[in-house]
């Protein structure tokens, strides 16, 4: 699934990274706990989180997530968006809650980290 398809499916706003809409995704992971993301995240993951602080952007970059989807309409502040831009990390924001966002992605073929 491309980032553009993720945007449509999750009715998401592209906070940053419009130039990466053709990026492909096969798997995703979701957590508000960055400790878990660091321990279980995999390179190339589409990360879903409700934690919109600067650490979420930093953590995504460290684990080499391909993009981040913030749920519940959240989005990082100016510093977080700037850090994402510097690190070429696309950021989306969806109004859906975590369960629905994950469910929609899974039912459209995006697998979990353990299925990789």
């Amino acid at each position: 699934m491309t980032l553009e398809e993720v945007v449509k499916l999750l009715e998401a706003e592209i906070v940053w990274g419009e130039q990466y809409l053709d990026q492909e995704f096969e798997f995703a992971g979701a957590s508000d706990l960055m400790s878990d993301v660091l321990a279980f995240g995999k390179a190339g993951v589409l990360l879903l989180t409700g934690l919109a602080n600067i650490q979420s952007v930093c953590t995504a970059r460290i684990i080499e997530a391909k993009a981040v989807v913030y749920v519940r309409g959240r989005k990082p502040d100016k510093e977080g968006i700037e850090l994402a831009r510097m690190n070429k990390l696309p950021i989306l924001s969806t109004g859906f809650l975590m369960y629905k966002a994950c469910g929609l992605l899974y039912s459209h073929g995006i697998r979990g980290l353990e299925d990789r």
Binding site: M34, V37, L38, L51, Q55
Partner: peptide, 9 residues
């Protein structure tokens, strides 16, 4: 609250 401190580090 910052997303850390789960005893995983």
């Amino acid at each position: 609250e910052m997303g850390f401190g789960a005893g995983m580090g």
